[in-house]
């Protein structure tokens, strides 16, 4: 049998002439991330990365960003973003109390509680 094949597979995406190209995207983010970038992002995400990890992440994240950058080959002007796979609107719930107390069961999983409160290091206001 003969399966007709396309002119390229996914590893050749740059060669797709059917893709409309855009040459002048105004904001082209910097592809490569350095250690300081990683540390900044890690702080936002509340992750601790030591120097070694930051370097390693900088390298692998830069490679992933390179992959992601391929998206910019497509001109998406006028395309409606798709945040959900279904088009349906939000379903609404009637305003009724349906929950019963399960505090004790929930707090069995808690690292630290006292007088029914979850304990954390002091929050400074």
């Amino acid at each position: 049998m003969n399966v007709s094949t396309g002119k390229g597979g996914f590893n050749q995406i740059h060669e797709y002439d059917s893709l409309p190209h855009s040459s002048n995207r105004s904001t082209k983010p910097e592809m490569a991330l350095n250690r300081a970038d990683v540390e900044k992002i890690a702080h936002l995400a509340r992750l601790q990365v030591d120097e070694q990890e930051a370097k390693a992440f900088a390298a692998s994240l830069s490679r992933i960003l390179e992959l992601i950058e391929q998206m910019n080959a497509v001109d998406t002007t006028g395309v409606t973003p798709m945040a959900h796979p279904q088009e349906a609107g939000l379903r609404l719930r009637e305003d009724r109390v349906t929950e019963v107390n399960a505090r004790e069961k929930f707090q069995r999983n808690a690292p630290a509680t006292e007088r029914d409160l979850y304990l954390v290091p002091k929050v400074i206001e």
């Binding site: 409160l117 979850y118 304990l119 954390v120 929050v123």
Partner: peptide, 9 residues
């Protein structure tokens, strides 16, 4: 809470 903060949700 002896220097800790309690969380009530």
């Amino acid at each position: 809470f002896h220097g800790l903060t309690g969380i009530d949700l």
